[in-house]
């Protein structure tokens, strides 16, 4: 189960700025705190793939880090399956923007991190190779992360996250820094994987197309301080194609306009 309830979540940081940026925005300045996230309410269903969009620095990553338990909210509540989040846990695995693989461990050892509870060595090895095969890294078990390409590193990290069998996977810009083709392939893999395992996936991205192709739902954060400015469920069938679905294409133009781009190519 991976149901997430976010109620009245606020996040503020200490303001390092001496002078107010502007006087006419009372919300931005509460004493000497800067409000990053303001009054976020979200209900995420079990098995939903939610894509978070928003301009750089709007607090998308902060929101995900709060859900993951790396940071505490200043106000409000985050609950997973009805229980408040008290810190990081193997139930909700965070896949990092830059590689979070341990560079001193081989691919197999990294993937094995989530399977430490299996005491039987053979059992563990079988599971490890199962997940390595799932991301098509067989043959690279004994390689160290830096001997792999960027795309392979992401896949290894994906395998490691999947191996824990988490309720929720949280991905912070999982495709950033990948070349175009690898990006497309990884996107497809994540979509297929989601269809296969039906886990709740939260995914932060800058890429509107990624969100439209992948998401069951798109949440756009924006404004100052950051609020949810759009929350839309996408019930287009997959595989999705902008050219064949005029409705999707229309939504795409709308989103681009919303993010400040007049002509989407």
């Amino acid at each position: 189960m991976g149901r997430i309830t976010i109620e009245k979540l606020n996040k503020t940081y200490a303001n390092r700025r001496k002078d107010p940026r502007s006087d006419d925005d009372p919300l931005l300045r509460q004493g000497d705190r800067v409000v990053v996230l303001f009054d976020i309410d979200l209900n995420i269903m079990d098995g939903e793939m939610v894509c978070f969009l928003g301009p750089s620095g709007c607090g998308k990553s902060t929101l995900l880090r709060i859900i993951a338990g790396f940071e505490a909210p200043s106000d409000g509540r985050v609950q997973i399956n009805g229980k408040p989040v008290r810190g990081p846990s193997a139930d909700h695995i965070f896949v990092f923007q830059h590689s979070g693989l341990f560079p001193w461990m081989t691919v197999a050892e990294n993937v094995g991190l989530g399977l430490r509870h299996l005491k039987n060595r053979r059992d563990r090895q079988e599971h490890v190779s199962e997940f390595i095969e799932m991301v098509e890294l067989d043959g690279f078990e004994q390689h160290y992360p830096r001997q792999l390409s960027g795309g392979m590193q992401r896949r290894a990290e994906l395998a490691r996250a999947l191996a824990v069998n988490p309720d929720i996977m949280i991905m912070d810009e999982p495709f950033s820094g990948l070349d175009f083709l690898t990006h497309m392939k990884m996107r497809e893999e994540v979509v297929n994987m989601h269809a296969f395992i039906q886990k709740t996936i939260l995914l932060v991205t800058h890429n509107i197309d990624d969100a439209l192709i992948m998401g069951d739902r798109i949440v756009i954060l924006g404004g100052s301080p950051t609020r949810v400015i759009m929350d839309r469920t996408l019930d287009f069938p997959r595989p999705r194609d902008f050219e064949k679905s005029p409705e999707l294409s229309l939504l795409r133009s709308e989103l681009f306009l919303m993010m400040g781009v007049n002509y989407a190519v």
Binding site: G100, F102, W104
Partner: peptide
């Protein structure tokens, strides 16, 4: 610091943080 987040995410015990993260690092 990302590695410590990963360790927390995978429920590392205090001993594991030292033997599997800090020392090899």
């Amino acid at each position: 610091p990302t590695y410590f987040h990963v360790a927390a995410n995978f429920n590392f015990s205090r001993t594991e943080i030292i033997t599997r993260l800090v020392i090899p690092a």
